[in-house]
């Protein structure tokens, strides 16, 4: 598992990259009430705003962590946004994507580094 400074996690699974947000991020957001997902097939560049999350407090974006193409999105979050709070590392993945250049992940944090990052 890799982590970004934007509090996303990336997990390689069957040749694609699964992306979600960390427990720390979910806790900071508070109760999530709305999720807007991109369409599968969308080409994205690193740092594009691809997902909108709204919590009881505010709206925030999830950025594309790398260049690539979105291959699948988790529609379950649209109907049940609270999954993001209940199971951020598991059921509440946001999207799956292919990597245009998987070396973009080399510099990302591992779990120990992320833990140190959030203190």
């Amino acid at each position: 598992m890799k982590y970004t400074e934007e509090h996303e996690w990336l997990r390689e699974e069957d040749g694609v990259i699964v992306v979600g947000i960390t427990e720390h991020a979910a806790e900071q957001l508070g109760d999530v009430v709305f999720v807007e997902l991109p369409e599968a097939g969308t080409s994205v560049s690193k740092d594009d705003e691809v997902v909108v999350i709204e919590s009881v407090k505010a709206a925030s974006d999830i950025l594309a962590p790398i260049d690539g193409e979105i291959t699948e999105v988790n529609e379950a979050l649209v109907d049940n946004p609270s999954l993001v709070n209940d199971d951020p590392l598991g059921e509440a993945w946001f999207f799956k994507m292919t990597a245009a250049d998987s070396s973009q992940m080399d510099e990302m944090m591992d779990e120990a580094a992320y833990k140190a990052f959030v203190g």
Binding site: G30, D31, V33, V56, K57, S82, N85
Partner: peptide
């Protein structure tokens, strides 16, 4: 602004 129970 909130306690551990959360806003909801």
């Amino acid at each position: 602004v909130q306690y551990p129970m959360g806003v909801m």
